[in-house]
Amino acid sequence: MAVDTATPGAVLGTPRPNTPRARRYLAPLLLPAVILLALLSIYPFVWLIYMSFHAVGLAPGAPSEFVGLDNWQRMFTDSQYWASWGVLARYSVVSMVLEVGLGTLLAILLNRSKHEKLLITVLLMPMMMAPVVAGLLWQYLYNGTFGWYFWGLRSVGLLDEGTILGSADTALWAIVAVDVWEWTPLVALIVLSGLKLVPQDQLEASWMDGAGPVRSFFQVALPSIKGSLMIAILLRFMDNIRIIDHFIALTGGGPANSTKVLPLYLYEQSFSFFELGYGASIALTLLLVTILFGKLVVNRFEEREPRPSKKDEELV
């Protein structure tokens, strides 16, 4: 539990202010943040919709020209747009499978290790690193002249010709490796928190039933870490759409667009070619997908909220 309240109250469920006076005093606490957030999210969202129907003028004060559905039509016929969805999907799925597999294994082993605390501190380190710096660091490691990882791969014979990032065959997987390096620990820590919730008595019951470690893992542990795994997967998918710093630092989308994931394509259209109207259309489709994912994430979170307790029932 995050805060030790030293009372069973948090377990019993929290009674809420129930007087009209109490409700009145909550409003001034809530509203400033809501208004600020509305200004920073709903207002831009409306702008985004507006922009997607316009060719946005670039010069200061230049008017935007209404172009109807042009941006949308262009998007649906833009082969790079669809190809970028494909790259994003390939990138997300592969890094997800690796991170979840490796992260779960790591969590199970961490749970049995005597040095759990120390190891967690080490594992947190990559996550503190600015993604763009991580990208630059790995670009250095992959570098065909100075890069130690390049040298290592050549030395063990895994790489015969070309550079790692210069080849369309390897560039995407090289970025996957960076993502795995930076974020597998997050998956591991989420799963680890799920493992801590595995009911020890159920484990003991399954041992008494004669189950071995593998069987009792699938029988008892897996069902209770399922929720954690789901949250890990959703959060990672979310971040793969959100953050493109690795791509910008490592390849910028190349070679031959082989690493041009959709958000990167959006970035390029908007801020390299300054096609802001077209960018707005792409951004809206990305947002739509995000909101659908967000719904799944929120549903997951709410499943983890404690059920209303006796006290709450009495008060409702």
Partner: peptide, 29 residues
Amino acid sequence: SRGRFRGKRDLYFWIISTRMAPVVAVTVP
């Protein structure tokens, strides 16, 4: 945390989905 009011679930969702919006998509507007 303390209040009970209509639309609380929607408020939740709005808040968390803002946090999860793609950075580039927010940058454009």
